[in-house]
Design a protein around this nucleic acid. Structure first.
Lengths: 202, 202
DNA sequence: ATAAATATTGAGCAATGCTCATTTTGTGAT
DNA sequence: ATCACAAAATGAGCATTGCTCAATATTTAT
């Protein structure tokens, strides 16, 4: 690989990391291309030699965030075996903890909108889908009679519900719920959802 | 009231309505003060005689949206009596329908962030809180032994969970779920949550 | 009618994403 | 090493926006 290309790759990494720090510190709206350029020592316009768009830049940062989130959830699963029900609770709480510990980066995942007309690239969508994977396995154990498609639907519903609790719970706009309280609400409701879905209809 | 003040009030109304139309048509990011000014026939700078900020403008639009949402939920409650469990399902589905029918305005409620430093005004926060009111009454019927504070927590959790399902379900970024499927997923999970919370611990 | 108060205007500022002609740097052949 | 060509970096500049404010026009009070 030529020296020029190596340099480009290094700069690209530096740019993405600088963007990640900026979002973590000041939120999505605190991301300024000029500041990033200055931080990594290139000209203003140079940003667009490394990246197509700010959209792409944000998506790249999102990719890293998703990877770390994925790792956090995996870690939660590995730490000791548990019955499927408690495994789901553990994953939900791990999701909550990750969001709390990475608030702005986690928010950027959901707040970002592409500039009008540009669709979200396929790779970014499939990365998000991968998240459901974590819920899928315990769910399959709990509902052995359900088809993969049905399990997929249930997984998405469960994930969405927990996501909603985390999103509104961490919102400063509404009353900020203490993290401990949020964790226990999430545990309670996750168990309730599992129990309610498991219960035989009468 | 002087002629000048009447005029101001009329213009203010017109401004808020123009902003509402703009958001409904093009989303929060499609809101442009210059366009609004032109639409209601005042100078660019005139917008700031009618309203402090775009923040305030968006909050005013949000207030109207919340009022309509509140009316929709109330209507869902009134249409025939039902057991508390089914009442909660009905409210959840009504929430989903409102969001689908007022997508951009509903999104603006949650996507908007105040400009750095400005806190959300008290009146806007309490308007949001009023939403939980709808869930509170059926919940109180289901859990007569719980304290008002406990009921409040449960109401927020339930609301958040349904909100999450609607938010991710209507996201175009992920696979857009057909509205009918979303409604039935919401019904299923709402019943599951209620059942799970109701079930005696064993 | 006239002066004082008030409201409206729109040019202009600052911030920001992005472009592109110009300049600088890197590459490869002789 | 030298030169010619390709590739990359630069930064001035454009377009868009929210917002300001001195100047102007309008309303109100006497």
């Amino acid at each position: 690989m030529s020296k020029a290309l190596e340099r480009r790759a290094k700069l690209r990494e530096a740019l993405i990391e600088a963007a990640e720090r900026a979002i973590a510190a000041k939120g999505l709206s605190g991301l300024k291309t000029r500041e990033l350029a200055q931080e990594i020592g290139i000209a203003n316009g140079g940003v667009y030699n490394l990246v197509e768009d700010v959209d792409e830049l944000i998506l790249r940062v999102g990719s890293r965030t998703l990877a770390r989130l994925d790792a956090s959830l995996s870690l939660a699963e590995i730490r000791g075996a548990a019955a499927p029900r408690e495994m789901l609770v553990r994953i939900a709480v791990a999701y909550c903890d990750f969001a709390a510990d990475n608030l702005e980066l986690w928010r950027a995942l959901f707040e970002h909108r592409m500039q009008p007309g540009k669709p979200v690239p396929e790779w970014a969508i499939s990365e998000q889908m991968e998240l459901f994977r974590h819920i899928y396995k315990p769910l399959a154990a709990l509902f052995p009679q359900r088809s993969p498609a049905q399990l997929g639907v249930t997984a998405r519903s469960l994930f969405s519900a927990v996501h909603g609790m985390v999103a509104l719970g961490l919102e400063h706009k509404l009353i900020a719920v203490p993290i401990g309280a949020l964790r226990s609400e999430i545990s309670t409701l996750t168990r309730a959802m599992v129990d309610g879905l498991t219960a035989k209809k009468e």
